[in-house]
Design a protein around this nucleic acid. Structure first.
Lengths: 244, 244
DNA sequence: GCAAAAGTGTTCGGAGTACACCCATGT
DNA sequence: ACATGGGTGTACTCCGAACACTTTTGC
């Protein structure tokens, strides 16, 4: 493999995680300090990296995800590309690039991917920087155009959630209906009636009820369900709910 | 404006047009010949171009569309980005790039846009090359990875058509219900019952019937309709038809 | 008058929506 | 026994699907 990174092409991964309560996104610290002044600024960025000369963008995104989580085959989707001429032009960003020996005048095309992660386990350090889950609702001002990228990722992910079964990518393999409902409610910022939600899920043959229950919960244990991609592929009807 | 083109960044526009009968796509001839051998090969490409140093990708796509049609404010949407290391590596493509004094080893990131065009009027020549409408169903092998880009554009456009009102972007401002139905039928490759289709449209308040009829048709003239973006924005209900 | 497309109504089954109470478990 | 979330049914409305004939125009 050719180990040179392409200086003008990067991928940014918007990694979403769900803790049964909030939607979180994976961010890394960005701290700029120097000898004389000490701390110059401190903020956060999305996870991203440049692409190798002979690497596809999907492979680059998978590589980043693997470095962060040790997982292969994470749910990952290219959603939009960002290349505004001024996207690296804020003062902090210029200083950061210069201190990193990169040229702030170099226009960088960044291809945005979003990932859905069931496991909360991620590395705590990545390229020497701290990695952490931050609730999407509490994300502050980010580096570069990363707030924009996050907003677009959210939009794409919501739209996908409305039209395709991806919710369980944010849940363990076996999950309860309340957990599933919560995913929709939190991400779409709405609420559903429990009975109606369950009737709807019951109609989806690919949501398979198991003969298994939750353990160690201090209330009536819930039945567990699994998603069957197999049944989904075989029974999905192609189209026809056109127009909002 | 800085008039240098970025050599590693291009936009490709998949321009769709509808002639009340078929879905067409705008392609340009690509002919390579030389003194000794005469014609070396001849095929077609999508419309595309490199981006200027200080130009956004949307502006570049709009610029291409304007050059082709003389129209501003064409319906245009970024759908996917293509940057496979081998995307320019077919023998014909390498020869073409060399004869055009470009470096076939240069990896080019191409951001794909699709455009929907109501008018069939386009320029017949663009950068000295012939431009023509080709029925999507009859597109042969294209240059570079342009067949792939076309397929992805179709996929994105179909999905959008199913979930958002964009069909009339392919029709004149005033159109008949049969024309509208035909757009859906052709693009989604299906048929609809005329009565059910009309009942459905009648429920969409933003499809406004006019007090105006078709002229010069040798059958009962149909009522004309318009799309009202205004009513659409005010009455669209936000979500909730989740999962296929 | 004929060819061509426009326009129109009913029935049935299934899905969306609104709504309130009892159940199983851990502490 | 109590707190916590799990789990269930009914009534009403609206939508999707299936289906065939009459009307208006140009030629």
């Amino acid at each position: 493999m050719n180990k040179d990174l392409i200086k003008y092409l990067s991928v940014d991964c918007v990694v979403f995680g769900f803790d049964f309560d909030k939607l979180n996104v994976l961010l890394v610290d960005r701290v700029l300090e120097n000898m004389e002044q000490g701390l110059i600024f401190s903020d956060m960025t999305l996870t991203g990296n440049h692409v190798y000369e002979d690497e596809t963008m999907d492979a680059a995104a998978q590589r980043i995800l693997f470095d962060l989580t040790g997982l292969k085959d994470v749910y990952l989707e290219q959603f939009k590309t960002f290349a505004h001429p001024d996207r690296l032009n804020k003062e902090n960003d210029r200083q950061w690039l210069i201190s990193d020996k990169r040229n702030p005048e170099q226009r960088i095309v960044s291809v945005g991917f979003f990932a859905l992660l069931a496991t909360p386990k991620v590395t705590l350090e990545w390229k020497g920087r701290n990695v952490m889950w931050v609730p999407v609702a509490e994300v502050a001002e980010l580096a570069f155009d990363h707030n924009l990228i996050l907003q677009e990722a959210l939009k794409a992910m919501r739209s996908k959630l409305l039209h395709e079964p991806i919710a369980f990518e944010l849940l363990p393999e076996k999950f309860t209906l309340s957990q599933l409902q919560k995913v929709y409610e939190i991400i779409l910022d709405t609420t559903f009636d429990k009975r109606n939600f369950r009737k709807k899920v019951a109609r989806m043959k690919y949501m398979v009820p198991l003969d298994e229950k939750q353990k160690d919960v201090s209330h009536k244990p819930a039945r567990l369900y699994m998603f069957s991609r197999d049944i989904y592929e075989r029974t999905r009807k192609e189209l026809l709910n056109f127009i909002v």
